[in-house]
Design a protein around this nucleic acid. Structure first.
Lengths: 216, 216
DNA sequence: GTCTATACATGGATAGAC
DNA sequence: GTCTATCCATGTATAGAC
């Protein structure tokens, strides 16, 4: 791994951007030192000089890309105060990131992580950046809701993040199906939101029912 | 594409099984005519003789594998009559298929479908086998629930299928995180289930709230 | 320290042997 | 009709030029 001179940094950045472009446009199966270097406009061997191996480049690109994308939405997520507002922001993120493919990218890396050992931890870390933000919002938003008590924001945040990745991959093969899925989840969110609006008697009924049937 | 003599069929079957094994064990990135043929125990060139190209073999393997796996759970899903029962069956499917990797396989194919043109429709078709079954169950189970009215089983089924794939991929890089996610979704299901148990007054309140805030 | 030329491995596809 | 030997493209990695 090379030191941080100005020239080195420039080439590294080119390679990182090239890796992200290649992963989103061609997928993990077509991502190689050659294809990435071509996208970056540099010699193929520089991948190995600057990052040691293709996998390590992809791992670095994952951290780099995920941090950059999450940073873009951190302030907006921090401002969310209700579940329906969260759903709106979620839909917004989907619309904006679909074009750039920044979410499907995590899907490509998750698929690749199956074999490429070094990729697993890096991808988990990239997803965690999203999970941390989602969990913070859910903790705030679901505090008063039966969900906050029974499901727990930590698990829900992981479910939301992983599901999002799955739907984003699904969109690649069936765009209208993916839209239907997102619409349904939005409505599901409204139904959960409706629980907050119930009177105290009904809320107690729900909680009582949950305490009886819940398994944990 | 070769005709259906006994010997041809045998080689084809070997290749299909080899493709499934390679995809689940090595991932889409390491899946090639050579690796698949090695897993199948046949000469590499037979991929091209029997299926024309690697992509077409993978597409065929997707149909083959998905049909076989879905068939295994079709009767059990058909017997489901409540949401909580559906959740139990879902968890069962997860436990049983995790070992074989039959769900993550769809993730690998979704990742690969990004570029391999022929793979997209085949993967969508494979996912649809699951979606059809899930949708039938949801239609039955959610008929009486606000979700049936507002979200619609078609969209929900697609959301469930895609989310499952995402979580299954996520499990590859963070097993405990994936378990937390599944637990949370199970609890979410119980909360939805609790809505069914509400008295008519509370049910009307929920529906009224939804009609006001719903966007469609 | 940075990068290019080059060696060696793996993958895709076909001409022709059986 | 079924399969093998072989060719060329692509991928990984390094020795050595600048």
């Amino acid at each position: 791994m090379s030191p941080e001179t100005a020239k080195s940094l420039e080439t590294k950045t080119k390679l990182l951007d090239g890796a992200l472009r290649t992963l989103t446009e061609q997928g993990i199966a077509k991502t190689s030192a050659r294809t990435v270097a071509a996208a970056a406009g540099v010699n193929q061997a520089l991948v190995f000089y600057h990052f040691g191996s293709v996998d390590e480049l992809l791992a670095a690109a994952c951290r780099y890309g995920a941090e950059r994308t999450v940073a873009r939405y951190r302030p907006r997520l921090a401002a969310v105060t209700s579940l329906s507002e969260l759903l709106t922001v979620g839909r917004e993120i989907h619309e904006q990131e679909r074009a750039g493919g920044h979410v499907a990218l995590l899907g490509q890396l998750l698929a690749g992580a199956q074999t490429h050992e070094t990729l697993g931890p890096a991808t988990a870390a990239g997803l965690d950046l999203w999970i941390v933000e989602i969990e913070k919002v859910l903790t705030r938003v679901l505090a008063a809701t039966p969900l906050g008590e029974f499901a727990g924001p930590a698990g829900l945040a992981r479910a939301v993040a992983a599901s999002f990745v799955g739907i984003e991959l699904y969109e690649g093969v069936d765009a209208t199906g993916a839209t239907a899925a997102l619409d349904a989840l939005e409505q599901l969110g409204f139904v959960i939101g409706a629980l907050e609006q119930l009177g105290p008697v009904a809320q107690r009924a729900v909680r009582h029912h949950l305490r009886r049937t819940s398994r944990r």
